[in-house]
Design a binder for these strands. Sequence first.
DNA 1: TTTACATGCATAAGAAAATTATGTATATTT
DNA 2: AAATATACATAATTTTCTTATGCATGTAAA
Lengths: 112, 112
Amino acid sequence: MSNSKLYKGSLTTIILKLLTESDKMYGYEITQKVKELTKGELKITEGALYPALHKLEAGGLLDVEVKKVDNRLRKYYKLTENGTKETASKLEELASYIATMQALVNPKFNLE
Amino acid sequence: MSNSKLYKGSLTTIILKLLTESDKMYGYEITQKVKELTKGELKITEGALYPALHKLEAGGLLDVEVKKVDNRLRKYYKLTENGTKETASKLEELASYIATMQALVNPKFNLE
DNA sequence: TTTACATGCATAAGAAAATTATGTATATTT
DNA sequence: AAATATACATAATTTTCTTATGCATGTAAA
């Protein structure tokens, strides 16, 4: 992660969401995808990414498959069934967070 | 703070923003105002709030004025000139964060 | 009447999640 | 040959929060 402190806490949500779209991804690929989607605004550091992936795996949300491509190791991660459920929950939390912050910061947005 | 991990990093922004609207506020008042504005969804804990206020004061973004009301102490905080500038910057960061997260999570929102 | 809840401040211990700094290794580009 | 890109990983430190605790006054409920 980088730049704004606000990104703290959202890395897991980002990883899970990307995996709902791509079936399986490896770590480096995730960093590149995020950089591309955010026009370089968000750069995920390895020090944040790899521990996060390991934790998601340990928690049963991701499965791993190691492959050797071009003589280099890749660890492909994919969502488990439980991971898919958790992703939906995380995305709801994010939507809720955004709505709450807009209500706080912008009087035009009122919570129902 | 409470509930979602996503609130990490946004407490300072919330405090500063509220102070642009209310001229001066004291700690307990801030907790109640946030609870009210978010329909109870976000509860700021004292363990997070008071250190945050002290840090903002130490950083020159807030000024303090102690008053005794109903035989109880209140520490009223207000934005300094520098605090007002920093608030604008923090609010831009928040808007940027929201736009970025929506681009990541919702393909309909694309960054320009 | 005393017990709970509300108001008002504060700090300390610990957890969570990042940053920064390294380390290893191979492949490609300059 | 050196720099950059690809690909993983961990350790030390920092930031920011939660949880727990402490003090003090005022009011409502049992």
